[in-house]
Structures are given as C-alpha cells and as structure tokens.
C-alpha cells in the first residue's frame, strides 16, 4: 500500500471511529470497524480484539477480521496463555516478531498460530490511564518487526476504541464502565447465536453468516447487536 493511500486510510479510519462515538453508538460495530481498518492500513493479515469480562477478568473475543473458527481459536488461545493475556495483565504492548522463537512459552498458542501460517503477533493494550480493559492483537504472516509507524498507528486506533468504550464523559462512574463492557460482551453472545441461526438456515459458514448479519445492519442502519437480537428472537428473518 502506498504512503498516501495508507495515510488516507488511517484518516478515514479515525473519522469513522469518531463518527461511531455519537450517542447510542454501536459498540460492536465500532470495534469491527477498528479491526477491519487495522488489517487494511497496517501490514498485518489478521486482527482480533478482546475485552475482559468485568467480573471474571477473562478475555473474550469481541471483534475479529475473520469469523473462521480456526482463526478465532488461535486468537482465543492467545488470550488464555499467550501474548494477548500477557499484554492485558501488564498493560503493555507485547511484540513477538517471530512466534517460532518463543521456545515453547505458549505451546498451544504456538501450534494454533503455526497452523494458520501466522509468524508474528503484536498485542496492544486497550488502556486508559491506569485501567486496562482488553487487548488488540495483530497477526502477520511473515517474520519480522512491525514498523514503528504501524505500531504507533495500531496503538492510536486501540486508544480511540478504548475511549469509545469507556465513553470519556461518564468515565468516572465505575458501574457505567462495567455496563459498557458487559454490554459489549453480551452483544457478542447474541451475535454468536444469530450467526448460528443464519449458518443453519442458509447452510453457510460462520464467516458468511456474520457478513449477512452485518450487511443487513449496515444497509438498514440498525446496530449490529439489534439486528442479532431480532434474528435470535425470531422477529427478523434474514
């Protein structure tokens, strides 16, 4: 990607993210825009965003550039014992330019990543002041460092998303944060159920089912979670 188109892509991304941060914005859609943007403008092949459950602290995948189950599993393994959970726990970026060189530190994650052809992984904390709420994970198909500009851009995108979730203006109220996080995680439950309904009804895979759901939400200008709820409650037939 050329310099100019990259800059344009990034600017568009920030503008889109800013647009989503109006009242009653769709958190899940905003995070989906974020991961898709990362893959488009950064030198990476797959991106996943994980948020921690406010009660258990367990990281759960909320948005990813693919819903394909093997990729999803790799992302989640990274959140159980892998760079993602380390990044979340320490609130610092964890940069792994060569997964093969991690010497069995995360065997399950390593095996899953290798099976998907991922050679490097870069985990960015989703953090505001002293609070870390999740992590943004970038995967590359080639060994090597992510260049400094891409790293800065990724962290900036993660920060915008974090602010979006924490909703700056009500940031101080702890239970609001909890509600926002829980809302995003619960939306994901409904989205998974809706994907199941569509995958079964149309005999398609989860990736295609997600595209159908998102396509409907976008063209009808309804939040992704609302479209998912309609499908699950059998009010909306896609």
């Amino acid at each position: 990607m050329s310099e100019t188109s990259r800059e344009t892509g990034l600017l568009d991304a920030f503008a889109t993210l800013a647009d989503t941060l109006v009242a009653d914005y769709d958190v899940v859609e905003m995070l989906q825009v974020l991961v898709d943007t990362c893959r488009e403008v950064l030198d990476v092949t797959a991106v996943g965003l994980l948020l921690a459950d406010p009660d258990t602290g367990v990281l759960d995948l909320v948005a990813s550039t693919s819903e394909e189950s093997r990729i999803v599993e790799t992302l989640q393994l990274g959140a159980e014992a892998g760079p993602c959970v380390d990044c979340f726990r320490d609130g610092r970026a964890v940069l792994v330019p060569d997964i093969d060189a991690t010497d069995g530190r995360w065997p399950d994650f390593h095996a899953a990543a290798a099976s998907q052809g991922f050679k490097g992984v870069f985990a960015m904390p989703m953090r505001l002041r002293n609070q870390t709420i999740g992590a943004l994970n970038l995967f590359r198909a080639a060994v090597g460092d992510l260049n400094a500009r891409d790293l800065r851009a990724a962290q900036a995108l993660a920060d915008v998303a974090t602010i979006g979730i924490l909703h700056e203006r009500s940031f101080r109220a702890n239970d609001v944060l909890r509600d926002q996080l829980q809302g995003a995680l619960n939306s994901r439950v409904t989205i998974e159920q809706a994907k199941g309904v569509l995958a079964h009804r149309h005999q398609v895979d989860m990736d295609e089912a997600f595209r159908m759901l998102r396509g409907y939400a976008r063209s009808n200008r309804v939040p992704l979670a609302a479209a998912a709820r309609g499908v699950v409650e059998r009010r909306l037939r896609l």
Binding site: V58, D60, Q76, A79, V189, Q193, K195, G196, A199
Partner: peptide
Amino acid sequence: RPRSRRRIHQATGF
C-alpha cells in the same frame, strides 16, 4: 473457556 462458550452460543443458534 471463552472459545467453548462461543461454540455453545453458535450451537444455540442452530
């Protein structure tokens, strides 16, 4: 584990 939960939610949809 979250990844098992995700499968359960999808199966719930089925």
